[in-house]
């Protein structure tokens, strides 16, 4: 029961979508079944996201309760969750500050706190990539030299000042970089990776449908 039921469910749902791929999706039966199962996927997916939220709150609360190191920050996390979630959950009909529409607390917090903070978090990566390039980008081997030279050429090509610099040597260079490095060698490698990864994903999908791949179920 604990193993057979999930395996049977994965098999049936998987086979349904493999079959519907070859049939007319607009027909009542095929379309109806696909539509229902896709709704199921969205609903279960929504719950899994909420599971993640509960998990974060649980772990944070445990730290607060046991007064672990930095518990005060965990308390701030919990309070922030509540400050963002509660006004968003309350109905708009109570106040224009509630709900998720423009002008609500939820919207204000998103635009003025969450979005800029998320952008700042990622903006710091610019500093790290510069530092990493300075420390680790060394022409130690032939392969590393190829990587370094290509990176430098592409960096020059992608910015106007760099392009002007390349044009000093020949106005053909930017076009050649685009055609032979990006649209030639890079395209070929990406294509090789895409084909390989897609074959891998298809094989893994088949293993899941046939019940050979069971790691998603955890330990038995």
């Amino acid at each position: 029961m604990r193993t057979t039921l999930p395996l049977a469910v994965a098999f049936i749902t998987g086979v349904v979508f493999v079959i519907t791929f070859f049939l007319n999706e607009e027909s009542a039966i095929v379309g109806g079944i696909s539509k229902q199962l896709l709704d199921w996927l969205i609903i279960i997916g929504g719950f899994t996201l909420l599971l993640g939220v509960v998990s974060i709150l649980r772990v944070s609360w445990q730290s607060v309760e046991r007064r672990k190191e930095d518990w005060i920050y965990k308390l701030i996390t919990i309070l922030s969750v509540l400050v963002m979630a509660i006004p968003g959950l309350l109905p708009e009909s109570w106040s224009s500050l509630f709900g998720r529409q423009e002008g609500s607390i939820y919207d204000w917090l998103f635009l003025n706190l969450q979005a800029p903070m998320m952008a700042t978090m990622f903006a710091t990566l610019a500093f790290y990539i510069a530092s990493a390039a300075y420390r680790a980008f060394r022409a130690r081997t032939a392969e590393a030299t190829i990587l370094l030279v290509t990176a430098t050429l592409v960096m020059l090509w992608r910015v106007p000042m760099g392009e002007a610099f390349l044009n000093l040597f020949s106005e053909e260079i930017p076009g050649l970089i685009n055609r032979y490095i990006m649209g030639g060698v890079n395209l070929a490698v990406q294509r090789g990776i895409i084909i390989g990864a897609a074959l891998g994903a298809a094989a893994m999908s088949l293993r899941i449908i046939l019940g050979i791949e069971r790691t998603y179920m955890g330990k038995s």
Binding site: L49, L50, G52, V53, I56, L57, Y73, K74, I76, T77, I78, L79, S80, V81, L82, V83, M84, A85, P87, G88, L89, R100, Y106, L109, F110, L113, Q114, M117, M118, M121
Partner: peptide
């Protein structure tokens, strides 16, 4: 930590 909390809270309502 405020960022982590707000991001989590954003998901709940959405």
């Amino acid at each position: 930590n405020i960022f982590a909390g707000l991001t989590t809270g954003y998901q709940v309502s959405l």
